[in-house]
Every structure is written in C-alpha cells, then in structure tokens.
C-alpha cells in the first residue's frame, strides 16, 4: 500500500547521526514490546508479512510518534485483536486500570485466527517454474498501486533496471499478509542507476533492490 512506511526518497527528515553509546533497548518496556511483538505472529495465527502489513496500517501520526518499539507494541495488539485473542480496547482498559482508573475490561471475543495453508516454515520455497528473467535482462518495475501489502517501494515503480542476481524463491508477501495463500515466486536483485530513479544530476550511485517476479515486466 502507499503510505508513511514507504520512505525511500522522501524528504524533510533531517540529518543522520550515530550514537556510539546506544543500548539495545533504551528503556525496559522496549524489550517487553519487542518480545511481545515477536511472539504476536504465533499467538495470533498470522505471519511475518501480516506483521509488516500491520505496521503500514497504523495511523501515519502514530507510526511516527510511537517510534520503532512503540510500533511493535501497537502491531502486537492489532494482530491479537484481529485474531480474536483479545477484545478491542482490552489493552487500553487494562492500562487505565494499572494507572488507577476504573475502566471496564471487555469480555474476550470469539477466536478468529486466519485459516490458510502454509507450505513450510520461513519464507523461502522451492518452486518448479523456470525463472522468467535472467541475469543481465533489462526490466521495468511495474507501476503497481496495490491497495494491500506489497514490497515494492514507490521510488522504483515504473523505472527501468537490470537483473543482477536470481535469489531463492519466496512466498509473495502480497498473498501471505492477507492469508490468501503463498503464491511463491522467484525473487531477483535488480540494479537501477541513480539518474533513472532521481533524474539528471542525481548523486552517482547504483541502487540494488529485491523484486518479486510479478513486480517486474520486460522492457
């Protein structure tokens, strides 16, 4: 989907600096949020791609305000509510009670975990189809505007590149994030020159990105 998460090439974010004394978790709750987020896929019967999609479903203001582990916490809650493990508002009510308010906690809903077939653990799959593209092929990233989850940033869509590697085939996040199946596909690394992406005068560089076969077309 088109949204706040798709940051490549957007402007106005300021400068980047390294904090050499950074801790893995700046505050204790971030570690708890990380662990709960990591466990939420299994507990909700969803998957990694659904988790990534849940990040995209956050309100753009929340996405930015919550920070990385705040997003993990929000996404854990989102997936668990989607799957009926927790009621909508349950976390909010409990948090208010922990803060000394008297909030009524909602009853548990019916479990509603998604039903779908997985072809194995992880994301990589063996497939029989021959790769449609070969190393050295000139391709174009399709000008896709899918309304759900996918993994093709806006900044490469519609642009011409060259295949540099064929990677292991993998489940298509567009399918798994929405529990419609796996649709495993070949994955390619594609090189785009900076001026193709950013126009004349772009800083000299090459961009390598991994694209699923259905994201690509011949030029």
């Amino acid at each position: 989907m088109d949204g706040i998460h798709d940051m490549g090439g957007t402007e106005g974010w300021g400068t980047v600096s390294i904090d050499p004394d950074e801790k893995v978790f700046a505050e204790d709750w971030e570690g708890r949020a990380f662990a709960l987020g990591a466990m939420s896929g299994g507990l909700s019967g969803t998957n990694l791609d659904a988790f990534r999609h849940s990040l995209e479903r956050l309100h753009p203001l929340a996405y930015l305000q919550d920070g990385y582990y705040g997003r993990w916490l929000a996404c854990a809650e989102l997936l668990l509510v989607d799957s009926g493990v927790l009621a909508e508002g349950a976390v909010d009510a409990r948090a208010r009670n922990l803060m000394g308010e008297s909030a009524e906690e909602p009853a548990d809903p019916e479990l509603a975990k998604p039903e779908y077939e997985r072809g194995g653990g992880g994301s990589l799959r063996e497939i029989d189809d021959e790769p449609k593209f070969a190393v050295g092929d000139a391709i174009r990233a399709r000008d896709m505007h899918a309304r759900g989850h996918h993994r093709m940033p806006a900044y490469v869509r519609g642009h011409a590149g060259v295949v540099t590697a064929i990677r292991p085939a993998a489940v298509l996040p567009d399918a798994t994030a929405h529990f419609t199946g796996e649709d495993p596909q070949h994955v390619y690394t594609v090189a785009f020159e900076a001026e193709e992406l950013w126009g004349p005068g772009a800083e000299a560089s090459t961009l390598h990105i991994d694209l699923f076969e259905s994201y690509m077309e011949t030029t």
Partner: peptide, 21 residues
Amino acid sequence: TAVPPTRPPAPIRAEALEALL
C-alpha cells in the same frame, strides 16, 4: 481519522498487554 488522543503511555500499555496474555 483521529489518532486515539489519550492513549496510555507505551510502558503501561506494554505492561497491560503482557498481563492480559
């Protein structure tokens, strides 16, 4: 759409989620 305007702070929500689970 409004962002929930008065969400409890993240440390409390993390504690709440862990307790519920």
